[in-house]
């Protein structure tokens, strides 16, 4: 058992070390993703308490958060310098795509909100 805990401690330490090395802009995106996911969770919890009556409102709220998080993760993948697959994709282009996709997503959500 102590071996496992020490392993876990080591793991968390090295994870923290590795994460500390990530560039700031990626950290900001991570924060954004975390915020979106947390908002989604709050909404789900609220739905559990109050009920899902205007179901389209609930759906659009939760999917808006999840969609934002997913798109931000996509942006993070694309602007990550370590990612070899997207070397020739300029970050400006990635951000433009991100904005476009978000625009479509939120237009749809506004339409669906009811």
């Amino acid at each position: 058992m102590p071996r496992a805990t020490s392993d876990a401690k080591l793991l968390i330490q090295s994870l923290g070390k590795a994460y500390a090395a990530t560039p700031t802009n990626l950290k900001i995106i991570d924060l954004y993703v975390g915020f979106a996911v947390a908002t989604a969770l709050i909404q789900v919890a609220y739905m559990g308490l109050v009920g899902s009556f205007p179901f389209n409102s609930f759906l659009s709220g939760v999917l808006s958060c999840i969609g934002t998080a997913v798109l931000a993760v996509c942006l993070r993948i694309q602007v990550n310098k370590d990612n070899k697959e997207f070397k020739d994709l300029p970050p400006e282009r990635a951000f433009a795509d991100f904005v476009l996709c978000n625009l479509v997503l939120h237009l749809v959500i506004m339409n669906f909100l009811g």
């Binding site: 759906l59 997913v70 697959e85 479509v104």
Partner: peptide, 28 residues
Amino acid sequence: YSSRLYIAYAPLVVLGTLLAALVPVVGF
């Protein structure tokens, strides 16, 4: 698995589900 796979699939599910729900005959 590649990160391209993630980009191809994850936005499609979220956006696609929302868009499909917009069509009255599909709805919820």
